[in-house]
Design a protein around this nucleic acid. Structure first.
Length: 503
RNA sequence: GGUCCGUUCGUCUAGGGGUUAGGACUCAAGAUUUUCAUUCUUGCAACAGGGGUUCGAUUCCCCUACGGACUACCA
């Protein structure tokens, strides 16, 4: 009696989507696709105070950038919409009232100040104040006053909340797909507020009502929700609804030290914790994977393996493979430290597999800014020679600048190998090159090696100064490839330049 | 403090009553490149501790320690 798979990603628009949120979305997406189900986005904006403009757009853009778009949600309204809880406000109260009527919930008039005071007092005694079966009978609520009095106070406009009445003396046996059986004592739970005095539902109510109304089959969310599981299950029971199955994902932890990965870790350690760049209210900017040059496939691949793996040695997966292989049962239970180094490694894997011409177009923008004009074919060939050394597109220029502009400085350490005799050898080489018609890499190699052998000149005496002349440093791909790319005139020019400057 | 979850190399993890405890990242060494990087090869490196159960436990159970989350009219 399994129902059609419908899963949701339900973030609060309180800021940019955290990388942990991206993974939660990813796992939901993978699970939905694996089972031919629906992945929908619901915006949980029931807290009017924490609403941040732009956050919702950010979330949608981030999901799209990652390549894990939602099937239903804002802008993709299905029959279950609207998908923004603030637009569903009218729905919730009726459900809360229904619970009150059936004895599952009650009105509470206690002020925030009064409760704060009770909490402070309890804490002073080393105890914790809990609004539950033990204390509700002594507090200001509809259980301790008459129905008439309750109604009178509500009618008079007094502020109230609706609290859930947790059943007493019950051991709840709950099931989590990832963690197995979990037990909770109902007496230790507290009577959570379901409906706030501002007329909005709390997360707990809205979440359960919407998950039911939107026919959610599986709730896949972060481990921070595990303590709320008994409340949620009890709510389904109170409403008489079939509960979805639950899976609580392990948390993503800081790379160093203890605790949950936070925004500050990224700033401090120099890696993004957000998919896209985000402008903070204080004017600062938090970096994003997209702007830092990470490829969405690499981020998704890395994130997928943070807390999950298919049980094989394979590490590189396309989204389709991930969909095929994904299985909630194989999600790890323990939190995973975020490793920015491995993230980079994944990027390198995907980066080097990119089409050279596509990368050439990116590089051409950099060249244009520098006033360098070269045919795209030339740039493509250059990219083909250097891309395997790069992890990010932004490294391409530094890796290939000498293909576009002659060296202006020469690496100091390498200059030491420019000996007395070097200029003469380089002159001879120029002579040889001038008489070489076929300037292909392979021919150049043949000709130059033959010449060195004939004249009994050591490799090091030629190759090192030659590389220095052309590149300006001891780096770069195969030297003959560079010469072929540069062409005869440019090659000879650069050698002559070096002779002048270094002799 | 209370509740719940967790604990295999530094990190991500595989494994599972008898294994040389496997892979990947990082790091180191070697090879290639007379360069640098890439790549390849090799190496370093782990079952938190203590009790059980058992012929045998890293694997099952209990305890402890440690880590984490939650403990709001936030989600």
């Amino acid at each position: 009696m399994s129902r059609p798979v419908r899963v949701r990603f339900a973030p609060s628009p309180t800021g940019p989507l955290h990388i942990g949120g991206v993974r939660t979305a990813l796992f939901n997406y993978l699970f939905a696709k694996k089972h031919g189900g629906i992945f929908y986005l619901r915006i949980e904006d029931t807290d009017q105070n924490r609403f941040v403009p732009g956050a919702e757009e950010y979330i949608i853009e981030a999901l799209n950038w990652c390549g894990i778009p939602f099937d239903e949600g804002i802008g993709k309204e299905g029959k279950y919409g609207p998908y923004r809880q603030s637009e569903r406000k009218a729905i919730y109260k009726e459900y809360a009232l229904n619970l009150v009527q059936n004895g599952w919930a009650y009105y509470a008039f206690d002020t925030a100040e009064a409760l704060d005071k009770l909490r402070a007092e309890a804490e002073a005694e080393g105890k914790a104040f809990i609004y539950n079966h033990a204390t509700r009978g002594t507090l200001d609520n509809s259980l301790t006053i008459s129905a008439e009095e309750t109604q009178r106070r509500i009618d008079s406009g007094e502020e109230y909340v609706i609290r859930f009445k947790i059943p007493t003396d019950e051991t709840l046996h709950l099931k989590d797909i990832i963690r197995g059986d979990i037990k909770f004592e109902s007496n230790l739970l507290d009577d959570k507020v379901l409906f706030k005095s501002d007329g909005m539902p709390t997360y707990h109510l809205a979440n359960i009502v919407d998950d039911h109304l939107m026919e959610t089959s599986h709730v896949i969310r972060g481990e921070e929700w595990l303590p709320s599981l008994p409340l949620h299950v009890l709510l389904y029971r109170a409403f008489g609804w079939e509960a979805p199955e639950f899976a609580h994902l392990p948390l993503i932890l800081k790379p160093v030290g203890n605790g949950k990965l936070s925004k500050r870790d990224g700033d401090k350690l120099g890696f993004p914790v957000f998919p896209l760049e985000w402008k903070n209210a204080d004017g600062t900017t938090s970096s994003g994977y997209r702007e830092e040059g990470y490829l969405p496939e690499a981020v998704v691949n890395f994130l997928a393996l943070l807390g999950w793996n298919p049980g094989t040695d394979q590490e590189l997966f396309t989204l389709d493979e991930l969909v095929q292989l994904f299985d909630l049962e194989r999600v790890h239970k323990a939190g995973a430290k975020f490793d920015p180094e491995k993230n980079k490694w994944f990027n390198h894997q995907y980066f080097t597999r990119q089409d050279s011409e596509a990368l050439a177009h990116q590089l051409s923008h950099v060249l244009l800014e520098k006033g360098i004009y070269k045919p795209i074919e030339y740039i493509t060939e250059v990219v083909g020679l250097v891309k395997e050394r790069a992890t990010f597109a932004k490294e391409l220029w530094n890796l290939s600048d000498y293909f576009f502009t002659p060296p202006t400085t020469y690496d100091e350490k390498a200059v030491k190998n420019w000996k007395q005799e070097t200029a003469a050898i380089m002159e001879q080489l120029i002579n040889l090159l001038q008489n070489t018609l076929d300037f292909s890499s392979s021919n150049l190699e043949t000709v130059i090696k033959a010449w060195m052998e004939e004249n009994n000149i050591g490799m090091g005496k030629v190759m090192q100064p030659l590389r220095l002349s052309l590149v300006g440093a001891m780096k770069g791909p195969h030297l003959f490839d560079i010469m072929a790319m540069l062409g005869k005139d440019e090659t000879i020019n650069r050698i002559q330049n070096a002779i002048v400057k270094l002799s």
